[in-house]
Write a protein that binds this DNA or RNA. Structure first.
Length: 562
RNA sequence: GGGCUCGUGGCCUAGAUUGGACAAGGCACUGGCCUUCUAAGCCAGGGAUCGCGGGUUCAAAUCCCGCCGAGCCCGCCA
């Protein structure tokens, strides 16, 4: 089956050739998407009108007469545009047959044999995740799912910062302070120790020295200390993992920063860069050019210890040996860091490929989230609220469910809403967190998608489709519009993967669900005569497969009934 | 002060990579639709000088310049 993209390419080439032959000119052909009612692709004739000084209707006619295209059912001139109508109906027969034969497998792309190391989240293991950086795991995980669909071998990484000052403070606090903490979830449980240690440190320079000592031990590769620290930090990490797992985010690998010290990767970086390293007052740096400006990047402090940046170079070098392409999902504050990092890495490995997805922080109406000022919404709280809201909504509509069924459904709906409401917005756009929007279950929200899926499932539970589908039995415009939308799925996935913009998938999901809901309201299925019924069941079947696949790609559950 | 990003109806978002046909959705608002496959839905309606000012072009939300406003960054922190 030719993809929509290929059909577009064919149109473009056909016009280009026709114009070259008929008018002996070589011009750039720009094919665009016209508004509703003007076909599926269009070519503006302005350039030719201007060049030939002739009526667009005549030019259009001449082009139409001289080209032949497959999968195009109609071409016509309208004003200054040449419009093409794609023969979606014959494409639809093949598409739906594929789905009948192979199920959701029909929607995947061939294996590419390209290994992608996708790093995301990587929050410091010193406390629970909050919504401020909450976009990271959701965007990162969804990108991973999209790339897998496209045939990449994806390995997701969480880089655990156990070498910095913050980690040392938490470790000190947990080891030395006695507190009565009434909290089961591990990431929340350790917060008071961290806070108390920070407080003591400000007042007492001796404690600051103790913390310093931990850092030096870690830096020096003291394996015993490093492992002890990992045990404590690992508790917080377990809490973080528990939160993430609730919203379907899981990692293939947790890479501990201190591993780079223990396995000599940091030393190796310094060795590889030794010709470029310069000295200043006992500290060492190299120079890189970013945006035409020379920047000093320090690698070794004057006390001989390495910096986060140094270890990050080492980490990326290690990753580049594990995979062919690297992708990092980072907060906007890391932008300059990432630019410099890439420049340094290029000095070591010319052809290194790193793509970075940046997102801006989620803030509160009162301003930036800040744990210190207590102005913060934890991801756990957002998830809990969303699940509670989902429960209320379920109870409003369903009196037939048992308690466990309600709980399980509420979890699926609530967590889906959390993912979707973050996912649907372009990552570089700033986002102000408002409860009423975060808990929106209507319009472009995940319950809207899950609802359309459940409706389709419900029809198919009552009667099954036997696999027959014919374009000739499509009657209603809403059926055709649904078919068109279904056919766009793979193009959207590719587009979204190419640009690393998962919100495009989210937008498409709303369009698709919407076209199904319109179909649902316009076209009865079960009440129809046998042949129409079977045909419509085919549409419902295909929609259910595609929507299920879409929701999975976004990490959202798709219950059979809601 | 310098750099990066963003600015689209009352609110939120798409459209910007490739300039094109009346700027597209959602929330909120007004009115209609459950004896028919799940009303978390569907239909209809009002509501936008696309931050402001210039420029390029037959054509600008989109490209260029300037300004204003918001966020982020400018450590031998992470």
């Amino acid at each position: 089956m030719p993809s929509i993209e290929i059909i577009k390419e064919n149109i473009k080439n056909a016009i280009k050739n026709a114009v070259r032959e008929k008018y002996s000119i070589d011009i750039k052909i720009n094919i665009e998407k016209p508004p509703e009612g003007y076909g599926d692709f269009s070519y503006p004739l302005f350039d030719l009108v201007k060049f030939l000084r002739r009526d667009p209707a005549d030019i259009g006619r001449e082009i139409i007469d001289s080209i032949r295209l497959e999968n195009i059912e109609k071409m016509e001139v309208s004003g200054n545009y040449l419009n093409f109508y794609v023969d979606y109906l014959s494409l639809s027969e093949e598409f739906i047959r594929n789905i009948w034969e192979r199920g959701s497998e029909a929607l995947n792309f061939e294996k590419k044999n390209i290994r992608v190391i996708l790093e995301h989240t990587s929050a410091n293991p010193t406390g629970p995740l909050h919504v401020g950086r909450g976009r990271n795991p959701i965007i990162g995980d969804t990108i991973g799912r999209i790339l897998r669909k496209c045939g990449y071998d994806v390995e997701t990484h969480y880089y655990v910062n156990d070498a910095g000052r913050q980690s040392a403070i938490l470790v000190y606090g947990y080891k030395n302070i006695k507190l009565d903490v009434n909290e089961k979830k591990l990431d929340h449980m350790l917060v008071p120790y961290y806070q108390k240690a920070n407080e003591l440190m400000e007042k007492n320079p001796d404690i600051a020295k103790e913390v310093e000592k931990i850092m030096m031990d870690v830096e020096g590769g003291n394996e015993k200390i490093i492992m002890e620290n990992r045990e404590i930090l690992g508790k917080v990490l377990d809490g973080i993992r528990e939160t993430l797992s609730r919203i379907n985010v899981r990692f293939d690998k947790f890479y501990w920063e201190t591993e780079l010290i223990l396995n000599g990767s940091v030393k190796r970086v310094l060795e590889l860069l030794k010709d470029e390293i310069k000295e200043e007052e006992g500290a060492y740096y190299i120079e890189v050019e970013v945006r035409g400006k020379k920047e000093k990047v320090f690698l070794i402090r004057k006390d001989g210890t390495s910096l986060y940046f140094t270890r990050d170079i080492a980490y990326h070098l290690v990753k580049s040996e594990m995979g062919d392409e690297l992708i990092d999902v980072l907060g906007e504050d890391h932008k300059p860091h990432a630019e410099m990092l890439l420049q340094v890495l290029k000095k070591i490995k010319k052809d290194i490929s790193i793509r970075t997805v940046f997102y801006s922080f989620v803030s509160l109406p009162e301003g930036r989230m800040s744990t210190r000022r207590g102005r913060v919404v934890y991801l756990d709280d957002l998830i809990d609220e969303a699940v509670d809201k989902a429960r209320e909504e379920i109870i409003k509509r369903r009196s037939d469910l048992k308690e466990e069924e309600i709980s399980s459904l509420a979890e699926k709906i609530g967590t889906g809403a959390v993912r979707f409401n973050i996912l649907k917005i372009q990552s570089e756009k700033k986002l102000v967190f408002k409860w009423e929007e975060a808990l929106n279950f209507e319009g472009d929200s995940s319950p809207f998608l899950q609802y359309s899926y459940a409706r389709a499932s419900s029809i198919l539970r009552k009667e099954s489709w036997k696999g027959n589908f014919s374009r000739n039995l499509l009657r209603d415009p809403s059926e055709i519009s649904l078919v068109k939308n279904l056919l766009n799925y793979q193009e959207i996935i590719l587009d979204s993967a190419r640009e690393l913009r998962p919100y495009k998938v989210a937008k498409y999901a709303v369009d698709l669900a919407s076209s199904f809901n319109i179909f649902y309201s316009q076209c009865p299925v079960l009440r129809e005569s046998e042949d129409i019924k079977q045909n419509r069941l085919g549409l419902v079947y295909a929609f259910r497969i595609v929507m299920g696949d879409l929701l999975e790609t976004m990490g959202i559950e798709h219950p059979e009934e809601i």
